[in-house]
Nucleic acid binder design. Structure first.
Lengths: 337, 337
DNA sequence: ACGAGAAATGTGACCGTACACATAGTCGTC
DNA sequence: GACGACTATGTGTACGGTCACATTTCTCGT
């Protein structure tokens, strides 16, 4: 005969076995201070013995706290967002939070609101938006979401709740490096237009070009992939009125270099290339890539810290900008005379 | 004066406004068939109007269904696991499920059980384990977890619940390719010993070497990173008793090639290198990398399909192996005479 | 016109926890 | 030794849904 499908033990079962009331058990679970050590011990013993696990759904129902934070991320499997995501999970877990992730397949408005709704219906306590696109903010505004929210938005919104990562100065560093090497005709291969990060990097590039009184072509809008970089590289080799390219990420830089080599151009002798992100492979590309390092893990950790501070009502908003760092390797050199 | 903190509308509020009972509203929410179209419409109208959202915690409490699946993933930000994860999210969402992710920072036993407990306490309905390590299975067995579970375990466990990805034949394809080119001394740079994928790839390599009656050095155990590949490459250039290397992933292959180039060795003229995974950048490495392609997205989708089938009690276990594919590029060539 | 059966809708109980409040036990103090 | 002030523990209720079952309304054949 089949054993009866046994119900998981609940707080009253534990209470009965420990010879106390359920409230006492609840106190033990929540580390209440006014509880006699001996009873506490007895209760814990029973808990361990029967394998009791508090039911989070019940807890969430009564406290309206789910101990979950929602993360909205992009579909891309890139190193940066992924690393930040892992850091977020780590940090969240340390604080006893779980992370529910949902990724944006398309950038359609419908899809974004749909994901947000889904997350909200799970009663997430706060939201972190990684790799944010402009439309996401529109959606959030539109839905009138009252959740604490942290984003990696470098554009100084009126919205207080954003973690500033100084992409602009990173892009400026990269550009300045090229200018200091003597380059005058620099092309920028930017990221997708609706990505806030891409926008910021482009802005940094243009600002620096401006400050140096140089002209430039309108940036090319890419899609972050090496494939795209390759195609752009092939196009570019037709025109020869540039000596350096600043790509908005390392993958596109890799594709560019590939295309240049195919066309018989040497990097950095004929063309200098700078990337952005410093993914772990960048040091092993050929040539090793000059790029701008971002501390993605730190970004993730800070996001969580910020979010939890807001959840607790602490105004402790750590608004130090996270500064990127220029890593000079072998893909850049002075232009040929 | 501050507005009262308004409680979100609940099912009874909706019922009152629609002039029906809460049960009728519940029926509308759950698409019960015996409901008059006109009332259904009226209820939906009210729901929309007051912005009612069913409380998942309450629902989970009574149904003990959380509509969430838990994913246990590795800390690594590698392309493969990440891509699978995104695919899992996509597929899960399509079925109305949310995904809670938690990543393994260390491979300590404690940490694994801790994560599992955390996930379980959130009442996830099923588990997907990506990039599985041997210890994870020990932990699962130890904890006596009764949840439906899908893993990417290629070793045919007694455990019915695993999605077979044929890593072994992938590794064999790579090795055979080298043998067919004429290589006789082939080195294998494997992944971490406790990763099931690494183990399977190593096994495939050894099997193929065996079948060809060749000898080989004991495989070198790596950590998946390009940095490690680079260091191994430097070591290897000391000995010159090999003509080809099969690396267990593309990143390590990249590091190897970097080291070989540093040592004045040409790939593929002096040494052939094969990777594994075919990450999007592999085609743009220099030289473009010969590798084994895995369809990570498909893996993710199938995991979910399998898991949901089990959740629903359907025995429909789609156990077709997902076959990897050898992609021959320019990092392999016949050995020099 | 009536009753049977189906369709549509309503009522009570319960899921497992936390919170507010009530109560029993302990102890020093005047 | 009665009284308050704590400390430790117990009781009632609410959270927001779903399920099982009861009830009402409708449809239709005779």
């Amino acid at each position: 005969m089949e054993p009866e499908k046994v119900r998981a033990p609940n707080i009253r079962d534990v209470a009965r076995l420990a010879g106390v009331s359920y409230q006492t058990v609840s106190r033990v679970l929540n580390n209440s201070e006014s509880i006699k050590p001996s009873t506490k011990e007895r209760v814990l013993e029973v808990i361990d013995q029967v394998g009791y696990r508090p039911n989070q759904a019940a807890r969430a129902l009564v406290t309206s706290r789910s101990r979950t934070i929602g993360v909205l991320t992009s579909q891309t499997a890139h190193y940066g967002p992924t690393t930040s995501l892992h850091a977020i999970e780590d940090a969240a877990r340390e604080e006893g939070y779980l992370v529910s992730t949902t990724s944006l397949t398309t950038s359609e408005y419908e899809s974004i609101t749909d994901r947000l709704e889904h997350l909200i219906s799970q009663a997430v306590e706060g939201l972190v938006v990684i790799a944010p696109q402009v439309k996401v903010f529109d959606a959030i505004r539109e839905l009138d979401i009252r959740l604490p929210l942290v984003t990696l938005d470098s554009t100084q919104h009126d919205d207080q709740r954003s973690l500033s990562v100084d992409q602009i100065s990173g892009a400026r560093m990269a550009t300045r490096h090229l200018i200091e090497l003597g380059h005058r005709e620099i092309v920028h291969l930017a990221g997708p237009q609706d990505w806030i990060e891409a926008e910021a990097r482009m802005r940094g590039f243009l600002d620096e070009i401006d400050d140096a009184d140089l002209g430039t072509h309108p940036p090319i809008l890419g899609d972050w992939t090496a494939d795209f970089g390759y195609h752009v590289g092939r196009e570019l080799t037709g025109y020869r009125d540039f000596t350096a390219v600043f790509a908005a990420n390392d993958q596109m830089a890799l594709g560019l270099i590939h295309a240049f080599r195919d066309a018989g151009l040497d990097v950095p002798r004929d063309v200098s290339v700078v990337g952005f992100d410093d993914i772990p492979e960048a040091a092993h590309y050929w040539p090793p890539l000059t790029t701008v390092r971002q501390d993605f893990a730190e970004i993730g950790r800070r996001s969580v810290a910020l979010l939890l501070a807001e959840l607790r009502g602490e105004a402790d908003r750590n608004h130090d900008q996270i500064l990127p760092e220029l890593i000079v390797r072998e893909s850049t050199a002075p232009p040929r005379r």
